[in-house]
Design a protein around this nucleic acid. Sequence first.
DNA 1: GCAGGGTATATTGTATACAATTATACGAGG
DNA 2: CCTCGTATAATTGTATACAATATACCCTGC
Lengths: 237, 237
Amino acid sequence: MTNYDKKYDANDKYSLRGRVFQKLREDILSGKYKEHEELKEVAIGEELGVSRTPVREAFRQLELEGLIRIVPNKGAYVTGITAKDVKDIYMIRSLLEGLCARLATEKISKEQMEEMEENIYLADFHEDKGHLDQIAELDNRFHDILYEACDSKLLEHTLKDFHRYVLRVRQKTLATNTRGRASNDEHRQIMEAIKAGDAELAEKLANQHMINAYDNMVKNGLKEIYGENMDENGRDE
Amino acid sequence: MTNYDKKYDANDKYSLRGRVFQKLREDILSGKYKEHEELKEVAIGEELGVSRTPVREAFRQLELEGLIRIVPNKGAYVTGITAKDVKDIYMIRSLLEGLCARLATEKISKEQMEEMEENIYLADFHEDKGHLDQIAELDNRFHDILYEACDSKLLEHTLKDFHRYVLRVRQKTLATNTRGRASNDEHRQIMEAIKAGDAELAEKLANQHMINAYDNMVKNGLKEIYGENMDENGRDE
DNA sequence: GCAGGGTATATTGTATACAATTATACGAGG
DNA sequence: CCTCGTATAATTGTATACAATATACCCTGC
């Protein structure tokens, strides 16, 4: 938590450090650098045409974002997400997305409401056409709208952090089954509750939306994706 | 979010950067550096006897912790907490401490349970004696035990982040009234619910514990402490 | 053949030098 | 007296040099 939008000032794309940070985050989340892979300062620096200094500073930030793990005097390693992590994140998100939806019911602006309606309409359209990339994009955007609408920088940032963190997993499962349609239907219900001013209902629906998303993940191969880390805690309860 | 305990490997007290980071965090939270104060790299470096490099890296981390704000090419400034921030944090904490208590009911170890009981016993003792520092310390520790007992690195870290973030505020209010006693009574109830294996009750009690703590803050001068930032959003609802 | 140690090498940690940017001070012009 | 612009100083951004640490390999001795 605790960085909000302020971070974006310093991670601006105009400083070398900011560019390195964003590039590395992108590459880690997209899977270019795989789990437990070691990132070497000089190698990254040469690849991006900068010295070690901005690379090192970017590393420090990536570590606090949880994307890499720095072992003193040894190196920086890409962190993995365990199935247990994913489960925990969805438990937390279930509560916080609910809170977010409840707050958004009071605070949402006309523009945000309209974008949300449009988002759902478009998602239906692309679902019919089978445009998987757009569906994933719209799904992400729906949640971002919700986060922005709750009028809490802290909650918004916390949720965006978690959201981004599970992107690696979510993209895959959303694209491989019929969850897209169901997910969008749930989005519509949440939107309508917010529009009707029913904060209680919006909260409940958002809670359940996360639970459904997680259940779907488990059904559709979370184990295969993160199989190597499942042993410890990933399958209980 | 998203850094867990891994961070502590890199912020070890044996590297200069780790020492600078911890020292600065301590000084900011304790109030040595006040809101909006500018932190200069050379000044900090000279004071601690190190060069700018480790100071800069510590700055990057402090920024992601939300304690300072770095404006590119300008400087690093201690961030303030608005009353709205505090309110948001307690809303979020209410839910997450509840979740944490619920999980802890299943997962808590014998040692943790014992430390929790001892904590409450000791807090009562120091309350009788009027040892304000120890009371605050034990209050913090109670929550840390709870966080550790939930068996979720992610939830633990998220809650510790929020907890630390409001320390600046909480210390003051806890020390200025009778909240200490009431707080410890609530701790006892939570502990007993966990001990009895009643996860539902533990969750509800932890929810309410945070709400009570926040209400008490508002009653006892949150406005005075953060008066300058109240104007925007701090008093609605 | 194997264990232990030591040296070479690679990599990170820190300090310093240099470049770029921003803030400040002062003077010229109105 | 005020304003603007330029020069100068202060500060951050980046690169490089040097130090400390960890790793790998070979060499020696048993």
